[in-house]
Simulated assay, not measured.
Amino acid sequence: MPYEVRGVIARGKGEAVSLETVVVPDPGPGEAVVNVQACGVCHTDLHYREGGITDEFPFLLGHEAAGVVEAVGPGVTSVEPGDYVILNWRAVCGECRACLRGRPWYCFNTHNAAQKMTLADGTELSAALGIGAFVEKTLVAAGQCTKVDRRAEPAVAGLLGCGVMAGLGAALNTGNVTRGDSVAVIGCGGVGNAALLGASLAGAAKIIAIDVDDRKLEWARDFGATHTINSRTSDPVEAVRELTGGHGADVVIEAVGRPETYKQAFYARDLAGTVVLVGVPTPEMTLELPLLDVFGRGGSLKSSWYGDCLPTRDFPMLIDLYLQGRLNLDGFVSERIGLGDVEDAFAKMHRGDVLRSVVVL
């Protein structure tokens, strides 16, 4: 029997979200229904509401989630009812050219549920990032469920489903930060602070946080920043060079997604250093750099997709580190809210008042 549950719906561009009845079908082959216990409010959800990703309204928002598997469809062996899972939007296929080359974190054919969830009148919903988790139960591909230790509170664990994993992975996986490195992070929201935390976990010697908001720079110190720079009052490139003996940082992570901050990252790195772009630009943005500077400075210019993570590898490991007290995931949870509070959470996020509001069901 299909499930009728409450979910947060974005019906049109810029319209306030509404709490409506969602019909969730029984899981088909390769699918699972998950009882959502908590889901973080991410900027990507706001981008969906604003029509910045696609125009396939109405959307069922939410994707940074943890919960318990309720039911699985035919052929599912990776999870079973009762498993505690974090949802992910990179359910690798195992068959595309990236997977076959042993690089599944670049999978070009990730799976989502084949069936659609609907409104009560039968209108099909587009699930944010193929998940749709601002809802009491959601339908996903079974590969989007990653089992983890159930001792980790859902409000904390679910954040690995997107933003926190993106930042941690930008440092650990894409940037390959190692012991003794100098690291600069531009933009100290949820993703940027997670990158700082990843650099600290990797043993970086100097971790420099850059933002225009002193409040965010204070938060950054809680996630491992050894130095802070307010780029409204200081030239960030010169300040990073001053802190690194005139050379620039070994790894610079851009967590804003704008051409001007990317240029700062490019020139704030050491010769043969690495720039990692994890901030998401908008379609109209363009970047111009002197090609001779690109050639002459050497090193690597990388983009980080979802922190280049492999959920089956990374989620359990990071949850174990959290349970050992070595990974400050609790610091990202600014407030716990209900399903009806998502619109207010968007406003707080836009103002920069929170790192993450988390819907708890």
Rank of each mutant, 00 (worst) to 15 (best):
C145I: 10
R356N: 09
R221S: 00
L271C: 05
G52F: 05
A66G: 12
G340L: 01
G245Q: 05
N112M: 08
S231K: 13
P104A: 07
M1F: 06
V333W: 04
G51K: 01
Q115G: 09
G73Q: 15
S234F: 02
A205T: 03
E70T: 12
E242M: 04
V72H: 10
L329P: 08
V240L: 10
A32M: 11
A171W: 04
T226S: 04
R6F: 07
P316A: 08
E343N: 14
K206E: 03
A272D: 14
G94K: 02
L139K: 09
A268I: 13
K116E: 09
E242A: 12
L100R: 14
E238G: 11
F57M: 06
T286M: 11
I253H: 12
N230Y: 00
L323F: 06
V237R: 12
V22Q: 11
C188W: 00
L327F: 14
G246D: 05
P58Y: 12
F266N: 03
V278T: 11
A166E: 03
C93L: 06
E218D: 04
L289M: 13
P290H: 10
G198E: 00
A142T: 06
G169C: 08
P290G: 12
E50K: 08
H43R: 10
G189W: 00
S334A: 15
A114C: 02
P81C: 06
T123A: 12
S78T: 15
Y267L: 10
R336N: 05
L87W: 07
